[in-house]
Design a protein around this nucleic acid. Structure first.
Lengths: 138, 138
DNA sequence: CGGAATCCTATTTGATACTG
DNA sequence: CAGTATCAAATAGGATTCCG
């Protein structure tokens, strides 16, 4: 209450206040940034689509991961699942309003990465080491 | 080559064109959205700081993961490492210009999640299942 | 077509101990 | 203080098979 911490770099809104260990935001962030979360969400940004469409869009995903990620995102309220009782089954997935808000914040990031990734991964050299895998794991 | 796919939902800029399987953007996205990537980057948004500071900020991270994530991000050119040859050692980490651009796109996302996470994780009910863990793994 | 269940492996992650 | 090395455990992820 008395002595304030020495100096605080200005900037930063209040966003960094969250993300503490047990915080719900950590959980949600984890869901969104899970290996396939971003891919699915971005794919769904193109509009409602079916399971098979989604699978093609999220290149490389397995059925298991698609199902799992979809359920998690649905559970978080980002994705809506519309199963029509017809034969053969038809299920459409789409973003909820919440999901659209999220994706709105996701696209700039993804777009930016898409535009800079080539220059990044190429990394001419000059850099000491770039461990893509854990050197400590046998 | 001949028959075009039926209908294409307009919208979406050109951002979704990336993120294909082997694409560099997938790699970078993976680095950034790795379990600790976002946390570290957001922590660094507060300004240059030392190893121990970073460790406190990214609550729950192990030394190994901190080192590993930091190296990856450094390798991608997002983070700058400034090691001063003094005793005891002093190392400052900071965002590069590239890293700042990235974080600029990251903060709105993180902020938004922080503001909505409570309502999300709480999920009153009405929802079928929310697998945080793989039910198939014994 | 859209999934759920199962089995198995690879990668990730964490604890700990040790070092410059 | 700022890491690195090693080991073991947890989880993610994938292939396959079966069901509505």
């Amino acid at each position: 209450m008395s002595a304030t911490t020495s100096l605080q770099p200005p900037a930063l809104p209040a966003s960094v206040m969250v993300l503490q260990a047990g915080c719900p935001s950590r959980t949600v962030l984890d869901h969104v940034t899970s290996k396939w979360g971003v891919l699915i969400l971005v794919a769904l940004a193109r509009g409602p689509q079916r399971w098979s469409e989604l699978r093609r869009r999220a290149e490389g995903i397995s059925e298991k991961m698609l199902a799992q990620t979809l359920k998690t995102l649905e559970g978080d309220g980002f994705v809506h699942r519309d199963a029509q009782p017809v034969i053969p089954p038809r299920v459409d997935y789409s973003l909820t309003a919440l999901g659209q808000e999220l994706v709105q914040r996701l696209l700039p990031l993804v777009t930016w990465i898409g535009e800079h990734a080539d220059g990044i991964v190429q990394t001419p050299s000059t850099r000491p080491s770039r461990p893509d895998k854990d050197p400590g794991a046998a």
